[in-house]
Write a protein that binds this DNA or RNA. Structure first.
Lengths: 212, 212
DNA sequence: TGTACATCAGTGAACGCGCGTTCACTGATGTAC
DNA sequence: TGTACATCAGTGAACGCGCGTTCACTGATGTAC
């Protein structure tokens, strides 16, 4: 890679990091072009050297944020039962620390409302990222759906909905004690989430770390 | 009430209906002053005869929307077990019809992200409305917390988080079949939500109808 | 009942601001010969 | 190796637009006498 290309790529990485942080903290409208470029140490005009428009940036920022979130949340493999796994991931996700540390928080929770009001391209990206997170929860490979038991996948969907809904509620209220209680109630509820297990309980090949 | 006051009140009701619909459809930023006033059949200048600023409107619109949502969702009393009640309310809430009918949808789901990024006044209003909905789920009076079993209240919190999270996810994705599956998985999960019941199962005095 | 004045819901033009996007330009890097 | 030109990441001023808010004004309603 030429020196120029290396420089451009370094700028791109700064733009992606800045836009991911802003997306998680303030949603789509917070990831404004001028603000993101300022955070990245560039002027707003340079933006169009990297992206065609703001929607492209939003999609790239979402993907960038979630790749990072997933790595830290689900992490590396480990032996555990399906229920233990959900309980463990729930205890990592539904914490006051995750609620308060917006800049590194789960982007699926941060932009769920924004995605609902976005065009098909952003929705498609959101769906792809949600599917990747669901597969990660199921401890399957990124693009490998065949090995996932449908009942477990449904458990994972409800689990993710509980995580995102609980975090959204906890952030939307004013009183810290009530917010803490919301998180605690949701962590507690994860323990009763898994559907009655199908005939044979297949051994999961799980993984390690927290944010979507 | 004088003829003038009646006229003003009729205008206010139109403003509240218009802003509640826009709040549910497009969130806080969608409930823009000029757009709301246009919907209400007035010019934007008249807005400040009714509200001090946009935040006051947002709070009033949220309260207006949720009063309506709650009435239709929880409705009138009926005899049923706690679990049956949650399952029934979940089946009313987590439907494709509710997902698609944005103008009448649950405002708690619609503005959860907005509330998280709002000032203390809007958050306080969101919290109050969320508490009212939780009490309604528990089939208690609006301002009466003493008769609610804490374990049930925690169940209600997790149930509401699952409803809001499931609806948010279902709206954020692109593919209708996947969206339907999200709703189905969440409806299914409600059935396993309730905590192991405490010693004596007290009889609930429940109620009837669907959106928050 | 009639007249004179006060009130006030609603009008419509204007404001300052931040947004996404465009564009002529700069200057360091890369390429051709 | 040296010169001449092409490329292109980044700059900074400018655009049109929608936002929340202000304000002088209108005209129907309400009130005092």
């Amino acid at each position: 890679m030429s020196a120029r290309a290396e420089l451009k790529n370094a700028s791109l990485q700064r733009i992606l990091n800045a836009s991911a942080a802003r997306l998680r903290q303030e949603g789509l409208s917070g990831a404004a072009v001028a603000a993101v470029m300022l955070d990245a140490g560039l002027t707003h005009g340079a933006f169009y050297c990297h992206f065609a428009n703001k929607e492209d940036l939003a999609i790239a920022a979402l993907r960038h944020a979630l790749k990072d979130n997933r790595r830290r949340w689900v992490g590396s493999a480990r032996r555990e039962s399906w229920l233990d796994r959900l309980i463990r991931l729930g205890r990592r996700y539904l914490t006051p620390a995750h609620r308060d540390d917006l800049a590194d928080s789960c982007a699926l929770a941060a932009v769920a409302s924004d995605a609902a009001r976005s065009g098909p391209a952003f929705k498609a990206a959101y769906q792809e990222e949600a599917l990747k997170s669901l597969r990660a929860i199921c401890a399957a490979a990124d693009d490998d759906d065949r090995t996932i038991d449908p009942a477990r996948f449904d458990d994972a969907i409800a689990f993710l909905a509980l995580c995102i809904g609980g975090m959204s509620l906890a952030r939307a209220v004013n009183d810290k004690a009530f917010s803490d209680r919301i998180l605690a109630a949701c962590r507690q509820a994860v323990g009763s989430l898994t559907a009655p297990l199908p005939p044979e309980p297949p051994t999961a090949e799980p993984t390690d770390d927290p944010n979507s």
